[in-house]
Design a protein around this nucleic acid. Sequence first.
DNA 1: CTGACGATTCACT
DNA 2: GTGAATCGTCAGC
Length: 210
Amino acid sequence: MAAEIKKLGASFYSRPNVLAIAKDLLGKLLVTRLDHHYTSGRIVETEAYAGITDRASHAYGGRRTDRTEVMYGRGGLAYVYFVYGIHHLFNVVTNGKDIPHAILIRALEPVDGIAYMVKRTGKKKDDIALTSGPGNLSKALGLYKEHSGLSLFGKEVYIADDGYRVRSNLIGSTARIGVDYAGDDAKLLYRFVIKGNKYVSGGKKNQVHP
DNA sequence: CTGACGATTCACT
DNA sequence: GTGAATCGTCAGC
């Protein structure tokens, strides 16, 4: 653990610009204290989902279901959902109540509790796939849909600033991954990466913009 | 109640 | 590059 770690608060998550928040999350630490283990990783890849006008978002058109209800809550909640019958994907809810913005965390660089992450994922060793890709990192940190709706202001799951800063010229934007169904909105440059970081997940075809 | 499919990953060709 | 895995969620009947 770094010496000085500050948990991100409501003023960070409640901002209206989901793209700015997605960019600001790069370099922050995602921390979980679950099943008696402290695990954390530095965020190196995010994707923004901009609410009811974004065709790629689960909340497009104002759709409200049992699953997506948490997206309509205040900023600073975890939104975790299950896809493909296999994977749980971890997102952060932003903006205010009834404005369903969210940011998918797509890749981390492991920091603390790496041995336990390896155990959780059932992998044989610490390789890149441990926390590269949204399904992989959620499993490595022990995040499942039962955590959906959990506040990020508590002690179990939170995001923190340890003073690490990403040089702005190392931040790139690209189109989002796996959202072909979204028509023109699939082209939006709503994915943010730390350029050159080896934990950034696939999507190599997606051109990185400076 | 039913059928179709997904903000993915991995093994295999 | 292609396809299987695998089941909760959701729209439609």
